[in-house]
Design a protein around this nucleic acid. Structure first.
Length: 314
RNA sequence: CGCGGGGUAGAGCAGUUGGCAGCUCGCCAGGCCCAUAACCUGGAGGCCGUCGGUUCGAAUCCGACCCCCGCAA
């Protein structure tokens, strides 16, 4: 088979989320991935070990050239020389301007982790979980200069499970999105799919989550906190303070107790469960992690913390 | 050399004027009971992170290293 007829593709992505899409493009004979663009190596973790992005590692495995520009705008000439037919962006991490969008003959495309136009921006995986939506999903758009504003080629809805977390949804969208991406690109390039413009009136911009966004406000409704706990794990993590120590709330029960007799933040026991009083109703904690310790089941935690009842979380 | 907490039974934790290694849960056996995650009796299970030092004697004091975690980045 000749390479002449393949769609010359440049893939831009960075974290684990991008990997299924990259693999799908590499393994599909319709495309030829001629280069991969990713962010620079970063120092990671407590020991600040210099680590390559997941996408770089996967590209090297497949003997595909890797570019790691500090600013992609400064590398336009090198990209032009590759004469790409398309460029595909999956969680790359840099803003793309018009002068780059104009380079590939057939345009630039993006896998977005929500059902556009509802959530644009950064924390779009988390947003539907926090809001208690029935579904989320993946969207393939043809990129324009706005942030997540380009016309929609294809979408795939995912029903949210009652115990859905950002982590589980992230994985689902990453995997299902890869399939969607390949099908959408083929359909579009073969002229079978006509992109549809987004309705800008139905959008919300979701900013990036910060560390502080994980701090639990116990004065809120237990229902809201339960959703936040699922949305905020694993990053930035839902946490609270127990006597000056960080206490991560890893998992709470979806079975919310109709109890409202304590001040919010108070810990009490109910049928051998560790329960926290919220502003409205109360939450059963199932898994937690105290600073310095590993994540554990609440019943294990209780074995070593007999005097926990009555303490107040901040 | 960024700051700090920790490593003791399968799990969670106590345990420093250095002196027989403990508690709760779980597990195993038996008992009670219409029955039970309840209760009673008995039992197994430890190189106290690793290596070295001090000492008559170290989980405990000193030194080095390994691993886990929080903060910061």
């Amino acid at each position: 088979m000749s390479n002449i007829n393949k769609i010359k593709t440049i893939f831009a992505g960075t974290p684990e989320f991008s990997i299924p899409s990259l693999k799908a493009l590499i393994n599909d004979n319709f495309f030829e991935v001629v280069a991969v663009i990713t962010q620079g190596d970063k120092k990671v973790g407590r020991k600040q070990i210099l680590t390559s992005p997941a996408v770089k590692i996967e590209a090297i495995k497949n003997k595909i050239p890797v570019l790691q520009p500090v600013k992609i705008e400064n590398d336009l000439e090198r990209i032009k020389k590759l004469k790409p037919d398309i460029m595909v962006f999956v969680s790359y991490g840099q803003i793309i301007k018009q002068n780059l969008l104009d380079i590939p003959r057939l345009g630039c495309f993006n896998l977005h982790g929500s059902i556009l136009p509802k959530y644009r921006g950064a924390a779009v995986i988390q947003a539907p979980i926090i809001n208690g939506d029935k579904f989320s999903g993946a969207t393939i758009i043809k990129m324009d200069e706005g942030l997540d504003t380009g016309p929609i080629i294809k979408q795939n809805k995912i029903i949210l499970e009652p115990n859905e977390t950002s982590e589980s949804l992230y994985n689902k969208i990453s995997i299902q999105g890869a399939d969607l991406l390949v099908n959408a690109l083929k359909g579009y390039i073969e002229g079978k799919i006509k992109p549809k413009n987004q309705d800008d009136s139905e959008t919300t911009y979701i900013p990036k989550l910060k560390k502080e966004d994980g701090k639990i406000d116990w004065s809120k409704d237990a229902l809201k906190i339960e959703r936040e706990t699922r949305a905020l794990n694993p990053f930035p993590g839902a946490y609270t303070k127990l006597e000056d120590k960080n206490l991560k709330i890893k998992k709470v029960s979806s079975n919310i107790l109709n109890i409202n007799k304590f001040p919010f933040g108070k810990i009490f026991l109910y049928k051998n469960n560790l329960v926290i009083q919220c502003g409205k109703n109360a939450l059963i904690i199932e898994k937690l992690q105290l600073e310095g310790k590993k994540e554990m089941e609440t019943k294990d935690f209780l074995q070593g913390h007999r005097d926990i009842e009555g303490k107040i979380l901040e």
